[in-house]
Amino acid sequence: MIFTDVVFYVLAAILLFSGIRVITTRNPVHAALFLVLAFFTAAGIWLLLEAEFLAIALILVYVGAVMVLFLFVVMMLDINLDKLREGFWEYLPMAGLIGLLMVVEMTLVLADKNLQPSQAVELPANYSNTAALGKVLYTDYLLPFELAAVVLLVAMIAAIVLTLRERKDNKSMNPSEQVKVKRNDRLRIVSMPAEVEPPEPVPAPAKEEKK
């Protein structure tokens, strides 16, 4: 067993532990932190496979953006943990069935002879796996890549529409209407008479007292 094998088994054990803790811990902040640990260990495995671009993308996109945003949302919202745990045991049989199906699928995939590891191929010193990945992605898999981009765009628009709520007390502006506004629509000159100050009241004469 060489050193890379030891590193792989250590990272795989940490990845399995962190993945289990994500779904078993009760605190959502701790679950998010365990998920960050899982992403880091997965990036380490990608580095062992000499896929540096995928490892850096995993850290920058998921750890640096998605999980940080998720942590901000979790910490800013007042989450009722007791309410979240309601109905956990009701969904456990369905979740167990789906997990079992995923295990069977992964077993069938790993048992395929065509997917067995082959001998390492010597690559030149100036070889770039990032350039090779981009070439394959934008040539052989261009259509699936474009379809995935369209699906993500539709999902983003749907999220915006679902979170947009019209409120009666909400004041919004329409830029197209603001551009069309003319002076007479906003300004009106009114002729008003000049104000005249009332005269000062004259004091009444004092009455003489009778003797």
Rank of each mutant, 00 (worst) to 15 (best):
residue 107 T to E: 04
residue 107 T to M: 11
residue 107 T to G: 13
residue 108 L to N: 05
residue 110 L to S: 03
residue 110 L to W: 07
residue 110 L to C: 01
residue 111 A to W: 09
residue 111 A to P: 00
residue 111 A to E: 04
residue 112 D to V: 02
residue 112 D to R: 14
residue 113 K to D: 02
residue 114 N to Q: 09
residue 114 N to H: 14
residue 115 L to I: 03
residue 117 P to Y: 05
residue 117 P to V: 02
residue 117 P to T: 01
residue 118 S to Q: 12
residue 118 S to G: 09
residue 118 S to P: 00
residue 118 S to C: 03
residue 119 Q to M: 11
residue 119 Q to D: 10
residue 119 Q to I: 10
residue 119 Q to S: 13
residue 120 A to Y: 06
residue 121 V to Y: 05
residue 122 E to I: 07
residue 122 E to M: 06
residue 123 L to R: 08
residue 123 L to N: 01
residue 123 L to G: 02
residue 123 L to Q: 06
residue 125 A to R: 08
residue 125 A to F: 02
residue 126 N to C: 06
residue 126 N to K: 14
residue 127 Y to N: 01
residue 127 Y to V: 03
residue 127 Y to E: 01
residue 129 N to H: 05
residue 130 T to I: 04
residue 131 A to M: 10
residue 131 A to R: 15
residue 131 A to H: 12
residue 132 A to F: 09
residue 133 L to M: 06
residue 134 G to N: 07
residue 134 G to D: 03
residue 135 K to S: 10
residue 135 K to P: 00
residue 136 V to L: 10
residue 136 V to I: 10
residue 137 L to W: 09
residue 137 L to M: 07
residue 137 L to D: 02
residue 137 L to S: 09
residue 138 Y to F: 14
residue 138 Y to E: 04
residue 138 Y to M: 06
residue 139 T to V: 04
residue 140 D to Y: 09
residue 140 D to S: 07
residue 140 D to N: 11
residue 141 Y to M: 03
residue 141 Y to G: 01
residue 141 Y to C: 02
residue 142 L to V: 03
residue 143 L to M: 10
residue 143 L to P: 00
residue 144 P to D: 01
residue 144 P to R: 12
residue 146 E to L: 15
residue 146 E to W: 14
residue 146 E to Q: 13
residue 146 E to K: 15
residue 147 L to A: 11
residue 147 L to W: 12
residue 147 L to D: 05
residue 148 A to E: 11
residue 148 A to L: 14
residue 148 A to K: 13
residue 149 A to H: 11
residue 149 A to M: 11
residue 149 A to L: 15
residue 152 L to K: 15
residue 152 L to F: 15
residue 152 L to D: 05
residue 152 L to E: 05
residue 153 L to N: 07
residue 153 L to G: 15
residue 153 L to S: 13
residue 156 M to K: 11
residue 157 I to F: 13
residue 157 I to L: 11
residue 157 I to M: 05
residue 158 A to C: 06
residue 158 A to R: 06
residue 158 A to V: 10
residue 159 A to C: 07
residue 160 I to T: 08
residue 160 I to Y: 08
residue 162 L to I: 15
residue 162 L to N: 03
residue 163 T to P: 00
residue 163 T to I: 09
residue 163 T to Y: 09
residue 164 L to A: 15
residue 165 R to S: 02
residue 166 E to Q: 02
residue 166 E to S: 09
residue 166 E to V: 05
residue 167 R to S: 03
residue 167 R to N: 06
residue 167 R to I: 02
residue 167 R to D: 01
residue 167 R to M: 02
residue 168 K to A: 02
residue 168 K to N: 04
residue 169 D to A: 04
residue 170 N to P: 00
residue 171 K to Y: 04
residue 172 S to E: 12
residue 172 S to R: 15
